[in-house]
Design a protein around this nucleic acid. Structure first.
Lengths: 198, 198
DNA sequence: ATTGTTTTATGATTTAAATCATAAAGTGGA
DNA sequence: TCCACTTTATGATTTAAATCATAAAACAAT
C-alpha cells in the first residue's frame, strides 16, 4: 500500500511476530500504523464464551487497524498473526506527517477503507438475513476477488479452513462442513482431497 | 461534513426526496456525492424473500454512499428517504476536483469512513456471536453516542421503532419486543408510553 | 369522525442451526 | 516413529429464535 522506502524514510521499523502472537489487543489505544511485509494477520473478536469472530484477514502489503488510529478510539478487535509475519510499524505522529507530505497516500487510505467498508456491508446483510450456503458462497466469491486465492486446473483454491469460514460467517464449523458438502452436491463447488475449489 | 457553500461553489444542487423515495438503488453505478441537508436516509438491503437489513441510518450533515463512488463499484445497498429529506448532490468529477483543492476535506472523509467501519466492526461481532439482548443493547449504546438521541429526565430516548432495531440487528420484530421487555425487567432500560429510554 | 396503516404486544408451534458426542484423517514437532 | 493437535466428518439431540396467529393501541389521512 505505502512503499517500504517511504515508510522507512519516516522511521518505520520491521518487526517479526510469531504464529498466534498478538500484535495489538482489543480495548487498547492505537499508537502506530501497521503494514504487512510478509505473512498473514487476522483481526478478530472473542465473545463472552470464547467464540471467535474474524473481522478480516490481511496479507502482504496490506495495512490494518487504521480506523481507530484516525478516531483516537480503542481497538474494537485483536490483531493476531495467523502465521509467522513481518510487519512494518510506524508511530502515529510520523504517520500523520507522512500523510500531510504525501496527499496521494490519503487517497490510497480512502480507497482501502472504502474497500473494507464494502466487504463489511456485503457480509453484514449475508450474516443477518441469509442462510448458511448463501453466506459461505458469498464469502468465497468475495475472497476470489479480494483475497489471494490461486487458480489452477480445478478452479480457485479456497485457502480457508472450515473453521475460518465459520468464524468469518458466524457459523459453526459443523454447519460449514455440511453446507459445503451440500454445495458440492449441487455442483457449485468442488471438494478435492478435502480442499475446496470454486 | 462539507459546508453547503463549498459544495454549491462546486456545482452541488439541492434535491427533495419524499418519504420512502429511493435515492439510489443497489446494483447501480455511483455517479454523485450525496450529503443530507435535512431529513433522514437509510441504506438497506432486501434479501431473496423480502427481508430488510438496514446498513445504517444517516441524518443532517452526513454523507452516504461514498465507498462505491471511490471504488467505481456498484452500490451494495439501496438509499431510501425514511422521511421527506433534502439532499445536496454533486457530480463525481466536481467532487473529485473539490477534494483535490481541499486536502482538509480528504481527512474529513477518512474520518467518516473510519467511523462507519468502526460501527460495522462492532455490530458484525454482535450480530454473528451475541444473543438478542446483548445485540440490542450494543446498538442502543452505540446510537446514544453516534445517532442523535435526545436526553431528557427519563434518559436518552431511543428514537427507533422495534422494527428498525430488528432490521439493524438482524432480529425479528417479535424477538426485539420480547428482548426489550426482558431488558426493562432487568432494569437496564425503561419503557415509558411504549418508548424506550436508556 | 371514520378508516386504513403502522407499531407494539403475546401466546403457540415449528425449525434450522447449535450443541453434543465421537472418530478418522491429516499435520507438525520431539 | 510416535504423540499431540488440528482439521474434517457424521449422527443424534436440543434449543433459541423464527414463524404463525391474532389483536389492541397509536397514528395518519380523508
Amino acid at each position: 500500500m505505502i512503499t517500504t522506502e517511504l515508510l522507512e524514510k519516516h522511521g518505520a521499523l520491521k518487526k517479526m511476530f510469531a504464529k498466534n502472537e498478538t500484535i495489538f489487543g482489543e480495548g487498547n489505544l492505537p499508537s502506530h500504523y501497521y503494514q504487512i511485509v510478509s505473512g498473514e494477520v487476522k483481526m478478530c473478536n472473542y465473545n463472552d464464551d470464547g467464540r471467535e469472530f474474524i473481522q478480516g484477514i490481511f496479507y502482504k502489503d496490506q495495512s490494518f487497524g487504521e480506523p481507530p488510529l484516525f478516531l483516537n478510539q480503542n481497538y474494537p478487535a485483536n490483531a493476531i498473526a495467523v502465521e509467522g509475519s513481518e510487519v512494518l510499524i510506524l508511530p502515529k505522529n510520523n504517520f500523520m506527517k507522512l500523510l500531510e507530505e504525501n496527499p496521494a497516500v490519503s487517497i490510497k487510505i480512502i480507497e482501502h477503507l472504502a474497500q473494507r467498508l464494502y466487504y463489511k456491508s456485503v457480509m453484514a446483510v449475508e450474516i443477518s438475513t441469509q442462510e448458511p450456503e448463501h453466506r459461505i458462497l458469498k464469502l468465497i466469491d468475495h475472497g476470489i476477488v479480494y483475497f489471494n486465492f490461486k487458480k489452477d486446473e480445478n478452479g480457485h483454491l479456497i485457502n480457508f479452513t472450515r473453521q475460518q469460514i465459520g468464524d468469518l460467517t458466524g457459523l459453526r464449523v459443523e454447519t460449514v462442513i455440511r453446507a459445503i458438502k451440500s454445495l458440492e452436491k449441487k455442483g457449485v463447488l468442488k471438494i478435492i482431497d478435502r480442499k475446496v475449489y470454486r
